[in-house]
Simulated assay, not measured.
Amino acid sequence: MMWGDGETQGQAPEFTAETVGTVLREACRGAGLDPSGAVMLRLGSNAVFRLDASPVIVRIARDADALCEMGRAVRVARWLAAEGFPATRLLPGVPQPATVAGRAVTFWESAQDREEYASPSELAELLRRLHRLEEPGSLGLDCFDPFAKVWGSLGELRGLIEDDHLGFLEERADRLHQRYDRLDWVLPFGMIHGDANIGNALRDRKGRPLLIDLDGFALAQREWDLVLTALYYERLGWHTRAEYESFVHHYGFDLMNWPGYPVLADARELMMTLWLGQRVPTDPTSAEEFSRRVQTLRTNGSRRGWKPF
């Protein structure tokens, strides 16, 4: 479904608070929703708004070519709802995804009026339950290829960041890719969330945890859904030891005891850094954090100073 001025994919304007505000208003008009008083919750891979006039979340994709990905997220959401799995629900009665001014837009029921994150142990329970599901082929899930994403991101950073930074990151990616190809996986291959961390696990109005941000669902080794929690604890200090141990207890596997963990952690660090690099030209705070991360990767310094985004 296409609303608005009919711009084609790839012609979307720069992704800023001002431009996505324009997309929000047009998308809400097309869906019969009132955008007045909408609050922007975040501006990252997606711009996420909570509407004031109704309990609705609107997500606008940064990537102008994200329509296929958003279509997959819609299919995943409908399947999870049919399975009774605790996840974010699509807003009924609205054709989805919509295309507005070259951006893919989706509409979701708001879990509650304020963001309350689930605990690491609750996230672990959600992942354990998710990993037991057998996905239907109709979802059209891709196999997760982290280094296709890494090399794509590096290509997009040409001209956006210093050549010296880019060269270092390319060399690091090449070394990591070689180590990654030699990993001996231990968990089963199957469906993953793709960005599993407590930032994507909220509590609803009754206090029940649920998964959000379904864009990254894919087929991969299940280790990928455990690495962020381990990384947040072991390197970044964003989780306590007790929180991490609770996560391990409820999921039933400690990724940090697997010899391949450092490779996955290094890969995730690199992906987190490259994502910030895309925001360097438009966001001074992201540019400062990007430089900090590159410096610590160069020197193998402490990651405890990294800030969450």
Results as ranks from 00 to 15, higher is better:
Gly10Asp: 14
Gly10Trp: 13
Gln11Val: 07
Gln11His: 15
Ala12His: 08
Ala12Phe: 07
Ala12Tyr: 07
Pro13Ile: 00
Pro13Asn: 06
Glu14Trp: 02
Glu14Lys: 00
Glu14His: 02
Glu14Arg: 00
Phe15Leu: 05
Phe15Asn: 02
Phe15Ser: 02
Phe15Ile: 02
Ala17Tyr: 00
Ala17Asn: 05
Ala17Ser: 12
Glu18Tyr: 00
Glu18Thr: 05
Thr19Asp: 01
Thr19Pro: 03
Thr19Glu: 09
Val20Ala: 08
Val20Asp: 10
Gly21Trp: 01
Gly21His: 04
Arg25Thr: 00
Arg25Gln: 00
Arg25His: 00
Glu26Asn: 04
Glu26Pro: 01
Glu26His: 03
Ala27Tyr: 02
Ala27Val: 05
Ala27Leu: 06
Ala27His: 02
Ala27Gln: 03
Ala27Glu: 01
Cys28Tyr: 11
Cys28Glu: 11
Arg29His: 11
Arg29Phe: 08
Gly30Met: 08
Gly30Cys: 13
Ala31Val: 04
Ala31Glu: 00
Gly32Asp: 11
Gly32Val: 11
Gly32Glu: 10
Gly32Arg: 12
Gly32Leu: 09
Gly32Phe: 09
Leu33Gln: 11
Leu33Asp: 10
Pro35Asn: 05
Pro35His: 03
Pro35Tyr: 04
Ser36Ala: 15
Ser36Met: 10
Ser36Phe: 11
Gly37Asp: 14
Gly37Pro: 14
Ala38Ile: 09
Ala38Trp: 08
Ala38Lys: 10
Val39Gly: 04
Val39Met: 06
Met40His: 03
Met40Glu: 10
Met40Ile: 12
Met40Arg: 13
Leu41Val: 12
Leu41Met: 09
Leu41Pro: 03
Leu41Asp: 03
Arg42Gly: 13
Arg42His: 07
Leu43Asn: 05
Leu43Thr: 01
Leu43Glu: 05
Gly44Gln: 11
Ser45Pro: 06
Asn46Ala: 12
Ala47Val: 09
Val48Thr: 15
Phe49Ser: 03
Phe49Trp: 10
Arg50Ser: 14
Arg50Leu: 09
Asp52Lys: 09
Asp52Ile: 01
